[in-house]
């Protein structure tokens, strides 16, 4: 009975999620390759060509290689996932993604026994990326997950938003979405997925290790050194919108078991 009521509660929480509007989701973005302003990606990302996209798969996999997108994910089951998105900057949205489970892709590629982490890399196309030309960050943007995090059923590769293909500013044509971690973990416009043995470098962690950890799980009890993470502001409430409490793991408690025995203040 306990389990059932728990599931019912979770389902209710899911149903209560009212997605943000398409306009809100596509005009308020962090995608520093296209500029640091929230409206820069919507303004600048249109010039990125995503038609013949290939993703390089390397490292400890049975089937490495450079895959056209259709080959990488073709035939896998796409589904809509309405997820909360909590940015490390203390704002949040609800996004109706369309995507596939990362696990399905990894299973297709054949993860070798020695692999313990998955490393991801974003495209670098200076001609169409003003933020890259200005050197805002040390590009290419790189991110990583522990293999069990990557294999978790909540972790998806998104290719769409509402019923449309993913807009460029949201990370077209394919991006990672890990809903229980701060948004910067959900790396956009993927060009490389590597199965590796060691914990990979991640862009924000390298830039400011005291501010951005490798795990970056949403956690109201561990503040960012420059601001509190206890509350967040949901985008779309206008000038007088009030803050709401941030939930542990962004409300996705089912991932808690991944971190059993870890000190979440030290490994934030």
């Amino acid at each position: 009975a306990l389990g059932l009521s728990g599931m019912a509660g979770h389902a209710a929480a899911q149903q209560a999620l009212e997605p943000n509007s398409f306009e809100e989701i596509t005009t308020y973005n962090n995608f520093y390759e296209f500029g640091t302003g929230k409206d820069d990606p919507a303004e600048n990302a249109g010039a990125m060509e995503t038609a013949d996209w290939t993703v390089t798969i390397d490292g400890l996999v049975d089937n490495p290689g450079s895959y056209p997108l259709s080959e990488l994910i073709g035939g896998l089951t796409e589904e809509e996932r309405i997820y909360r998105l909590r940015c490390v900057e203390a704002w949040s949205m609800v996004v109706p993604w369309v995507g596939i489970e990362l696990k399905d892709v990894l299973d297709r590629l054949g993860v070798q026994p020695g692999a313990r982490y998955v490393a991801f890399e974003t495209a670098v196309i200076p001609e169409v990326m003003p933020g890259v030309r200005r050197g805002v960050l040390d590009f290419p943007y790189v991110e990583g997950l522990r293999l069990d995090e990557a294999m978790h059923p909540l972790t998806i590769l998104a290719t769409g938003l509402y019923d449309r293909p993913l807009p460029n500013q949201n990370g077209a044509p394919i991006r990672l979405v890990v809903p229980w971690k701060y948004g910067f973990k959900s790396i956009k416009s993927l060009v490389r997925i590597s199965l590796v043995e060691e914990e990979p470098r991640t862009t924000w962690n390298v830039l400011a290790p005291s501010e951005y950890g490798f795990y970056a799980n949403v956690n109201p009890n561990v503040d960012h050194p420059r601001w509190s993470q206890a509350t967040e502001r949901r985008i779309g409430g206008g000038l007088f919108s009030s803050r709401q409490d941030t939930l542990m793991y962004n409300g996705y408690d089912e991932v808690a078991a991944l971190y059993d025995g870890m000190d979440l203040e030290a490994q934030f």
């Binding site: 943000n20 306009e23 809100e24 005009t27 308020y28 929230k38 409206d39 704002w91 502001r233 985008i235 779309g236 206008g238 000038l239 919108s241």
Partner: peptide, 14 residues
């Protein structure tokens, strides 16, 4: 900010 002309997150923008 009041009328949505500062983007979808007007508090920070203002």
């Amino acid at each position: 900010g009041l009328t949505g002309r500062l983007g979808v997150e007007p508090i920070n923008a203002l």
